[in-house]
Simulated assay, not measured.
Amino acid sequence: MQFRTSGIPEQAAPNHASWAGDGLSAAMAMVVTGARRRAVRDGDRHVDTAHLLHSLVESDPEVREAFEGGPQLARVLGYLVQRSIGYGLRWQGTQEDSGAFPAVREPAGEGWSPSAAAAMDRAARDALLRGERHADGLGLLAELVADSRCRAVEVLERAGVDVERLRARAQDRAAAGGPQG
C-alpha cells in the first residue's frame, strides 16, 4: 500500500545508525506499519507516540500484559480510538515534539514526530545494550512512557494509568525477556 498522498514517506521507520543493522523485527515492523496506517487514517502528517502506543497495545500481547488488567487497558484503548473522532483533534496538523529528549533530525526521520523517532531510537539502543538484535514492544513501551510530555503519556494519564508504574513494569518485563508474574 502506498502512502505518498498522506505526506508520510514510504519508509517503514527512521533508519538510524543505532537501530539494529538489518532493520526491525517482524513484530516491530508490524507495530510500525500499524502506527503509520493510523497516522494516515487520522489525517496526520507524522507518526507520533500515540500512534505507536495504539499499535503496540493492539498487536503485542506482552505490552497488554504490562497493564493492570482489562479495565485499564479498555480505558486506554477507548482514548486511543477516540483520537480521530474528537479527542486528539487539537493535535491534527501539528508535529509532536515534547523536547524531553534530543530530536532525531535526519532525512530518514521524515514522517515521524521527533518524540516518536527518539523513542524508537532509544528502544533500539537499549536492545543493543542488552545484547538483543532488535527492540521489542516492551522496550518501546518503556521508552514511550519515559517522555512525560509526549502524546502517548497524555493518553495514558487521561485513562488513569500510573505511568511510572507502567514504565517500571515494562522495563522489568523487557529485561527479563517477556511476561513475568
Score class of each variant (00 low, 15 high):
residue 3 F to C: 00
residue 4 R to W: 15
residue 6 S to A: 15
residue 7 G to V: 08
residue 7 G to S: 09
residue 7 G to C: 01
residue 8 I to R: 08
residue 10 E to Q: 13
residue 12 A to Y: 07
residue 12 A to K: 03
residue 13 A to S: 07
residue 19 W to E: 04
residue 21 G to K: 14
residue 22 D to L: 05
residue 22 D to Y: 15
residue 24 L to R: 04
residue 25 S to E: 11
residue 25 S to H: 14
residue 26 A to T: 03
residue 33 T to C: 00
residue 33 T to V: 11
residue 35 A to Q: 13
residue 35 A to H: 14
residue 45 R to L: 10
residue 45 R to K: 11
residue 45 R to A: 07
residue 47 V to L: 06
residue 66 A to I: 13
residue 67 F to E: 05
residue 70 G to L: 04
residue 71 P to F: 07
residue 72 Q to K: 00
residue 73 L to C: 00
residue 81 V to H: 11
residue 84 S to C: 06
residue 84 S to T: 14
residue 85 I to W: 12
residue 90 R to H: 08
residue 91 W to K: 14
residue 97 D to F: 15
residue 97 D to H: 12
residue 104 V to I: 15
residue 106 E to M: 09
residue 111 G to S: 01
residue 111 G to N: 00
residue 120 M to K: 02
residue 123 A to W: 10
residue 128 L to H: 15
residue 128 L to D: 10
residue 129 L to Q: 15
residue 132 E to N: 12
residue 134 H to Y: 15
residue 137 G to Y: 04
residue 137 G to P: 13
residue 138 L to D: 06
residue 138 L to N: 09
residue 143 E to I: 02
residue 147 D to N: 06
residue 152 A to K: 01
residue 152 A to C: 07
residue 153 V to S: 05
residue 154 E to L: 09
residue 156 L to Q: 04
residue 156 L to R: 02
residue 157 E to P: 04
residue 157 E to I: 05
residue 161 V to N: 14
residue 161 V to K: 07
residue 162 D to F: 05
residue 162 D to W: 04
residue 168 A to S: 13
residue 168 A to D: 15
residue 169 R to T: 15
residue 170 A to N: 14
residue 170 A to D: 11
residue 172 D to V: 09
residue 173 R to M: 13
residue 176 A to K: 06
residue 177 G to W: 13
residue 177 G to A: 07
residue 181 G to A: 01
